[in-house]
């Protein structure tokens, strides 16, 4: 258990709703849910979730901390915003899902092999390095996400498309060497660092 997680458990004891309210982006909305289930029914990925949003909200109220934070469910959100559009209480459900995922990640409770989570991490790391997505590196990283053999197989399978993309200049092999980026990478990193500080400070403020 991470120290941060340990600290949160001690701090909120069994009041998980309070913990979510304080620590999760838009988490203060969770208490406003009236369990109508329109979000659960509206989600295009609904059938693939273990727990739909409305159920997660109930689990939060019921204090099911472990189950919620280790759940793969909120990682399934593709930000289609159907739930937000239809929620009769105007809960920013999409944001809450991302908030919960992010919080679980920070606490080190997020499921390790959840594919969208892996994708998200790869994408983020790829993007933040130079401020531009390096599609070649991202593609390759995704091919090899599940191991070397798997990576080779996928690469071979995609070979033709890759070549076509090279030919039509949709992809440059030069990207492998560093690749293009924004002018002031340092500035971007400073912004991201500051953002993280603010976020942590906010979390601490709630905690305090």
């Amino acid at each position: 258990m991470s120290t941060m997680n340990q600290a949160k458990v001690e701090k909120y004891r069994n009041d998980f709703l309070k913990e979510v309210t304080a620590n999760v982006e838009e988490g203060e909305w969770v208490k406003m849910c009236m369990q109508c289930g329109v979000c659960a029914g509206s989600c295009p990925f609904g059938p693939y979730w273990e727990h739909p949003p409305q159920e997660i909200f109930m689990m939060i109220r019921a204090g099911k901390r472990e189950e919620v934070l280790t759940s793969t469910s909120m990682w399934m959100c593709t930000s289609c915003y159907n739930c937000i559009a239809r929620c009769p209480r105007e809960l920013p459900i999409t944001h809450i899902m991302h908030g919960l995922a992010h919080y679980a990640d920070r606490l080190g409770l997020a499921p390790k092999n959840q594919p969208t989570r892996k994708f998200a991490n790869l994408f983020w790391n790829n993007l933040t390095k130079k401020g531009r997505a390096n599609e070649l590196k991202l593609g390759i990283a995704l091919y090899f996400m599940n191991g070397f053999i798997e990576g080779i197989k996928t690469a071979l399978k995609m070979q033709k498309m890759g070549l076509n993309m090279f030919k039509t200049k949709r992809l440059s092999p030069m990207e492998l060497l560093g690749g293009h980026g924004i002018k002031d990478t340092g500035g971007l990193h400073a912004i991201l660092k500051k953002a993280r500080e603010i976020e942590l400070a906010n979390a601490e403020k709630f905690n305090g």
């Binding site: 709703l17 309070k18 309210t21 208490k31 009236m34 369990q35 109930m58 109220r61």
Partner: peptide, 8 residues
């Protein structure tokens, strides 16, 4: 709900 009353 706004005041934090939970409903089950």
């Amino acid at each position: 709900q706004q005041k934090g009353i939970t409903f089950t």
